[in-house]
């Protein structure tokens, strides 16, 4: 169990690195928006949602009313219903209250790391390892950003903005090489998202939700049909 926890910390390290520049910048932006150190850090501690936090700063600076900000946060985070429903199929059984604890740490990034693991069932200790290191990075570097600002050399700060996307690619490609269905799933979701983006049809939260769900359903239908066709063909051959 201890080993699983450490393996989780290791797997989550790439998330922690990726959160570093984003949290640092968030802390800095929060300060310029007028939030105190405690207010900014508390948002990272209790809300813990990168995109939603950035958007809220923007809305706060425009003087948007708090209820609208909360509703907006919900809309941005609805996609996590889909992710945790999917993750639930892969997780080891555990008491509900234990799952309720680590579910707090499920973000786009920790979900991706957990759900693309090769194991059939993900141990609970592993999930805690992944989520704790990512969460720690987010909270600590939010505070650091507020206190010392984003004091990295500019070129490095810029380069690090790619980190989370590079991580997503690092998680996706091995699965793509092993399985053509994965290629189709990712490509179709990316294509749908690009169309939504170019057409300016939906905000990012909805766009990710719709393109993910659309691709997952369409590809499943295609494969289920193929499966049926193959069995139907086999039956015909047996009969003749």
């Amino acid at each position: 169990m201890k080993n699983q926890f450490i393996a989780g910390l290791k797997a989550g390290l790439s998330i922690a690195i990726g959160y570093f520049p984003i949290a640092l910048t968030f802390g800095l932006l929060a300060k310029t928006t007028g939030l105190s150190l405690m207010e900014a850090t508390a948002m990272s501690i209790f809300v813990y949602a990168g995109a939603a936090q950035y958007i809220s700063l923007n809305l706060i600076s425009f003087g948007v009313d708090p209820v609208t900000i909360v509703i907006n946060t919900f809309i941005v985070n609805i996609r996590h219903f889909l992710m945790t429903a999917s993750l639930n199929e892969k997780m080891h059984r555990a008491p509900k209250w234990v799952k309720a604890i680590y579910s707090f740490g499920i973000t786009d990034e920790s979900f991706s790391v957990l759900a693309t693991g090769k194991e059939d069932k993900i141990p609970t200790a592993y999930a805690f390892g992944v989520t704790i290191i990512a969460y720690g990075s987010w909270v600590i570097f939010t505070a650091a950003g507020h206190v010392v600002g984003a004091n990295l050399p500019e070129f490095l700060q810029v380069a690090m903005s790619i980190a989370l996307y590079a991580m997503f690619i690092g998680l996706l490609v091995p699965a793509m090489k092993a399985n053509r269905k994965v290629v189709m799933l990712a490509a179709l979701a990316a294509a749908i998202h690009c169309i939504i983006y170019i057409g300016e049809l939906l905000s990012t939260g909805w766009a990710i939700l719709i393109s993910t769900l659309g691709s997952a359903i369409l590809i499943e239908i295609i494969y289920a049909r193929r499966g049926k066709n193959v069995t139907a063909l086999q039956k015909e051959m047996e009969e003749s």
Binding site: N88, L172, K181, V182, H193, I208
Partner: peptide, 28 residues
């Protein structure tokens, strides 16, 4: 949803989600 048995098509779709979500998160 813990311990609930889902229809095969639903659990099939759910198992597709991680790879679809990665595509949508990376691009554009």
């Amino acid at each position: 949803l813990d311990g609930k048995e889902l229809p095969p098509i639903v659990s099939g779709v759910l198992s597709n989600i991680p790879y679809a979500v990665l595509g949508a998160l990376i691009f554009p």
